[in-house]
């Protein structure tokens, strides 16, 4: 799974899709995940980095990430 290459992400959590003109906001964890998705990190790799840096167990993290990725897909931010 990879983020569309032209999606702009700012450190403040503002996300802009220049192809559609739509914009979104996310928190710092969202920014970290999006940045990793830009470089095509595996979901396992993303989970590992979140578990390492945040107080969260792997199962909860996997479930939450799945939800987040589904939202990204709904918003057309993921490459087909």
């Amino acid at each position: 799974m990879k983020l569309k290459k032209n999606i702009a992400i700012s450190e403040s959590g503002f996300v802009f899709n220049p192809e559609t003109g739509t914009s979104f906001t996310t928190n710092s964890l969202g920014v970290a995940i999006l940045k990793q998705l830009k470089t095509k990190t595996s979901t396992e790799g993303i989970i590992a980095s979140i578990v390492k840096n945040y107080e969260i167990d792997e199962t909860t993290c996997e479930k939450d990430l799945e939800d987040f990725l589904r939202i990204l897909s709904q918003f057309n931010l993921i490459e087909e």
Binding site: N6, P18, E19, T20, G21, T22
Partner: peptide, 21 residues
């Protein structure tokens, strides 16, 4: 090219953004 981001009640663009498509 532009996408309307805010419409009036008449459906006219009150705000918009240039896009890359």
């Amino acid at each position: 090219p532009m996408r309307k981001t805010f419409l009036t009640d008449k459906g006219k663009a009150w705000a918009g953004i240039s896009i890359n498509d």
